[in-house]
Amino acid sequence: MQIPAAFDYVRASSIDDALALLQQHGPESRVLAGGHSLLPMMKLRLARPEWLIDINELTELDYIRRDADVLRIGAMTRHTTLLESPDVGRLFPIVRDAEQVIADPVVRNRGTIGGSLCQADPAEDLSTVCKVLRAEAVIRGPNGERVLRMDEFHRGPYETALEQTELLCEVRLPVRQRSGSAYEKVERRVGDWAVAAAGAAVALAPDGTIEDAAVGLTAVGLEGTATEAETLLRGKRPAEELFAEAGRAAAAACDPVADQRGPVDYKRHLADELTRRVLRRACGRAGAEREG
């Protein structure tokens, strides 16, 4: 049994209560969501919060709601809920693609979208997914609510724009016409973090050309999205050669590091290969939607 350093624990009863507790206990307090990132770090004594503020009873943060052109997802929505949601699967197949390869059912039953985004691990799959879907993060703090784009929310590995006294409450995904999205990950084993992964979302114009595209990469040192690849894609007709070009651009834009999962050139190769694959699939899905 791995044993964390001593800590105190309190259960928040509402969002306001959680915010008050965060202020009361100060910088050494941490919010506990699914606990699947925080608790392992505590057990390895890499994280040593003095207070855990448990927000698992805040069922008001556990929802998936369609609201005109936005899908609103509460921060405490579990991976499993996202995986099983027909709305999510239909509107954003990339989320289902990703959720199928995030950890295992045990982790997915507890881990949350809010925790994933706040953890900001460079290998976190939902971070890439939210980036390419151009999601917005709704944050509440002592001074009220603010809404950030993902590129504003994520500041780098393990770093977000959240203040210590703030809570991520909601993730908003814009729903677009004639759109399609996809995600693919290479892992050494089921449940392992990505060696590399790619996500893409496209929206087609009525004439079938690509109106807008977003390409993101996981675990290979790409900040934000692959903007060059996106520029290449925009206005063009989906085609293998185009995907290949975008793949090369995405691979050139990333900056992987060698580790036990693989050397740099392999990861760069995967960035290229997986970008092609997700673009092919995203365009296929968008095309199917256009026809259907």
Partner: peptide, 29 residues
Amino acid sequence: ALMEIIEFDDDGNCLGGSFMDYLIPTAME
């Protein structure tokens, strides 16, 4: 055959010290 290895870096640090690093197969493999 496919995933297990206890590796060390040049300083002799063990790189297989947890199940996140030392992979053992699941029913899926």
